[in-house]
Design a protein around this nucleic acid. Structure first.
Length: 493
RNA sequence: GGGCCGUUAGCUCAGUUGGCAGAGCACCUGACUUUUAAUCAGGGUGUCGCAGGUUCGAGACCUGCACGGCCUACCA
């Protein structure tokens, strides 16, 4: 028994053969359009204002609705710029075009030429003089006024989501504008954009599980990068004083509404800057982007309104954790002590976690969800931050900040550690701790990075921004999958 | 990984106490010269996510699995 879909598709395939039999190519190589639908409407307004006379246009796009009325047919044609109504009158079309019109289905891509006018009800319309089939559609489109709402299908067949839901299109247009605005902001400040390897012999610059792959010719395992950091700092050593990379990074960890295994990170490094300079730059950058892309510094996010207007509140991490969790981690300087205190207030704590990860858990559990308005938390324990420089006079604290908004971490930055001996020590401590935790992937120390530091890296301020999360905030989306065109999904059986 | 919820036509969704598988859109046939969620008349296309079980009888009840959503865990 054929399914309904098979039947519709079969009917359209038959139509396709009929078209070919009449000498019509259902997939012609080109069509030259003179106007987008938006431009055609603008032209119509000019004509009506008496500013121009000759107003024949040709437009092209997808047919999204068909309203046949005997001698007359109305069609809605959508293109990237918008939509316009087509008016097809039997007496104005050739015999061939009339036959073709009958064969046009919703979903087909066509090109037409004709004259724009306004109907009685004021709808911008083109009186069609000729039409051309540009691509026959063999599949029925999602329903016209509920759109496509099945989340699974929206992600798996994103093109249908884009056709059926205008909101989806505007999210990704927004994403593109945000990334353009970031580039403009950094370029104007004298940064240069660089590209560094995705395939690396060891994945460093963050603590996360990497993806492993294998290079056949070299017969060696390589890792997909988990951060951009170590290569960009090599470039600071090399004298590229202001660099940034907007790049995809990969972390072999769980999926959630805030996590996709591959995501886009902005990292920037500026020689002779420190984390205070970076803080100023970040709040100015996000503010300018929101002004440029949204025309405002305020966005609706879930049930909150977030304002990006600088300056953002700056709060010491210790103070914030104490305030929100009631635990002053500085009073519990050993993992066992802190774990006991956390268990005492009813937290379930993984006994594998070291002290730094326990502090991180306090931060994630009590503080992060509360930070709706943009906020900087500063001065992290050194054991949480192996790549950051210690704060003068405070051995256990580094010059590091994380920026939060909408209850999510959106940026991480520090005054970069440039002492090669100290850096080696920190790497080795980290390695020891991870061995104690029996991590699956053995951490290898990036010797080449340490060698680079030994040649001398100037004092530097570094920044990492999760672009997908920034896009979530600026477009008001609460799931990361809504801002990634093709998010990672399990395979459908 | 754990908990809760969901999966019925191409799409959006109903489906009562376990008793013939439904609607709208889309599609097909016809009418209609400014419609716009066009309207009117007619047509019905399904592995009820998958596999078992209970029952005279399962879309519905039970078990397992798959996929998705939300929460949670890891993380950015």
């Amino acid at each position: 028994m054929p399914s309904r879909l098979d039947r519709i598709t079969r009917q359209r395939l038959e139509k396709l053969e009929e078209l070919r039999a009449r000498g019509i190519n259902p997939y012609p190589p080109r069509f030259h359009r003179s106007h987008t639908t938006e431009q055609a409407i603008a032209l119509l307004k000019q004509t009506e204002a008496g500013l121009t006379e000759d107003n024949e246009v040709s437009v092209a796009g997808r047919i999204m609705a068909k309203r046949p009325m005997g001698k007359v047919s109305f069609l809605d044609l959508h293109d990237n710029s918008g939509k316009i109504q087509l008016y097809c009158h039997r007496d104005l079309l050739s015999k061939d075009d009339l036959t073709l019109l009958k064969d046009i289905d919703i979903g087909d891509i066509i090109g037409i030429s004709g004259k724009p006018f306004q109907t009685k009800s004021g709808e911008p319309t083109i009186e069609v003089k000729s039409l051309t089939l540009l691509a026959k559609s063999l599949q029925p489109l999602p329903e016209k006024w509920h759109g496509l709402s099945d989340v699974d299908t929206r992600y798996r067949q994103r093109y249908l989501d884009l056709i059926a839901n205008p909101e989806t299109k505007s999210i990704f247009q927004g994403r593109s504008q945000i990334i353009t605005a970031i580039r403009q902001f950094l370029d104007q400040r004298g940064f240069i954009e660089v590209e560094t390897p995705v395939l690396q012999p060891s994945a460093g610059g963050a603590t996360a599980q990497p993806f492993v792959t294998h290079h056949h010719a070299l017969d060696r395992d390589l890792y997909l990068r988990i951060a951009l950091e170590l290569h960009l700092k090599r470039l600071i050593v090399g004298g590229l004083d202001k660099v940034y990379e907007l790049g995809r990074i990969f972390r072999n960890e769980g999926l959630s509404t805030k996590h996709n295994p591959e995501f886009t990170m902005l990292e920037s490094y500026e020689a002779y800057a420190d984390y205070n300079d970076v803080m100023n730059m970040l709040e100015e950058m996000v503010y300018q982007i929101s002004q440029q892309v949204l025309g405002t510094d305020k966005v609706e996010f879930g049930e909150h309104t977030i304002s990006f207007k600088p300056p953002w509140p700056r709060l010491e991490l210790r103070q914030a954790v104490t305030e929100y969790s009631g635990i002053d981690f500085a009073q519990y300087p050993e993992a066992d002590l802190l774990r006991a205190k956390m268990e005492a207030i009813g937290l379930e704590v993984d006994p594998q976690k070291n002290w730094a990860r326990l502090v991180d858990e306090l931060l994630a559990t009590f503080v992060e969800p509360e930070l709706i308005q943009p906020t900087f938390l500063l001065d992290y324990p050194v054991s949480m931050s192996p790549l950051a420089k210690t704060k003068p006079g405070r051995e256990r604290v580094v010059e590091r900040f994380e920026a939060f908004a909408g209850g999510m971490e959106i940026a991480n930055a520090f005054t970069e550690l440039n002492d090669p001996v100290e850096q080696r020590k920190r790497f080795m401590e980290q390695q020891k701790e991870h061995r104690a935790e029996e991590d699956e992937i053995e951490e290898t120390i990036d010797e080449d990075f340490l060698l680079a530091l030994e040649y001398g890296m100037p004092p530097t301020g570094g920044l990492g921004v999760g672009i997908d999360r920034l896009v979530m905030l600026l477009t008001g989306q609460t799931s990361i999958r809504q801002v990634i065109l093709f998010p990672q999904l399990k395979e459908k059986p």
